[in-house]
């Protein structure tokens, strides 16, 4: 099968859905002429024109707010917020308007809105351009939170997100854009809310998403050489969480480790770990372990940044300790 980058996979998803449905349009900062800060929308302005690929002013609140207004009146906006770090600027729109409007209206409206954004550390950009805020968003009933880690998932899930009648926060990772993977030429979508077993194993279940999935797979590879067999699961969607796939694995391995890039306290691992406890406590041989980001703002210095998020070595060490 052909291999393309994560960036290219996302770009194809956007182009195909715009081709398929004339109500789909893109709106955000530098998405048109520039092609997106990380190049995801490159070529779409030339292909679909300025009516459907709209450069907005630097107005995060209006981008999300207007996206909602357009979504409940017949359009399918795909908005872009350049960094997840800027979502807090429009958190009021996301939390109070986007997430709740359908419920508050007694189910009488649908919100086919996608908010694409990008987060994570690894480029030494400091505290305002490196955060992992997903745990804030899984605390908002009414939205769905998708975080793909490989090109195949990125494309299939973005296409489903655009076709979905619920608001989707689609969080990409800056380090993943240039990574490559197999993606078929033909049209496909992937279901939102379904996890994927990325590597099968017997001794321990490692749950990891976004950039951390790559680290977890590398760790599993090395652990394999030591005779430790790790099963690696990518939830792909954090809200709703496919806890069944995770617990089925834990019932087999009896041990679970969650790898997350966000700050440990109140992070996604806390939620996933608790759900494992609720669903598979009797199968656990030891407490669920978290390998997580440090509870600090992201430091600029690369010397500190790499210590602030999990590493392959850190995952290996945690698994050895748990299994050994």
């Amino acid at each position: 099968m052909r291999e393309i980058t994560y960036r290219q996979a996302l770009n194809e998803a956007l182009a195909e859905e715009m081709e398929r449905d004339p109500t789909v349009f893109i709106m955000g900062e530098d998405v048109a002429i520039y092609g997106g800060a990380y190049g995801v929308t490159r070529g779409l302005y030339e292909r679909f024109g300025e009516e459907r690929v709209r450069d907005s002013a630097i107005s995060e609140v209006a981008i999300v707010g207007a996206g909602l207004g357009a979504a409940i009146t017949g359009m399918r906006p795909v908005t872009e917020i350049m960094y997840v770090d800027f979502i807090p600027l429009c958190m009021g729109q996301l939390n109070n308007q986007v997430a709740k409007i359908r419920y508050m209206f007694g189910g009488k409206t649908k919100v086919p809105l996608v908010i694409r954004t990008e987060g994570g550390a690894g480029r030494s950009l400091g505290a305002h351009h490196s955060q992992s805020l997903e745990s804030w968003f899984i605390h908002i009933p009414g939205i769905k939170v998708v975080m793909p880690s490989v090109p195949y998932d990125a494309k299939g899930l973005l296409k489903s997100s655009i076709r979905e009648d619920n608001p989707i926060l689609f969080i990409e990772h800056k380090i993943l854009y240039n990574t490559k993977g197999e993606v078929p030429e033909e049209d496909y979508t992937l279901p939102i809310g379904v996890a994927d077993v990325k590597r099968e194993g017997e001794d321990v279940t490692v749950i990891a998403y976004s950039q951390m999935l790559l680290f977890a797979l590398q760790a599993a590879e090395e652990l394999g050489k030591e005779g430790i067999s790790a099963e690696v699961i990518d939830p792909r969607t954090l809200l709703p969480l496919d806890i069944d796939t995770i617990t089925n694995s834990v019932k087999k391995t009896n041990r679970a480790i969650i790898v997350e890039e966000d700050c440990k306290t109140g992070g996604t691992g806390a939620e996933i770990g608790m759900q494992i406890m609720e669903n598979a406590f009797d199968y656990l041989d030891s407490p669920v372990v978290r390998v997580a980001g440090a509870d600090v703002p992201m430091p600029k210095s690369s010397a500190l940044e790499e210590l602030a998020i999990p590493s392959k070595e850190g995952i290996i060490e945690a698994v050895r300790k748990l299994v050994g």
Partner: peptide, 16 residues
């Protein structure tokens, strides 16, 4: 450059 001798001890960088 993100060094310890920086005016913000390397924690802020250019953007901060």
């Amino acid at each position: 450059l993100g060094k310890a001798t920086g005016v913000c001890k390397g924690k802020g960088g250019s953007l901060h």
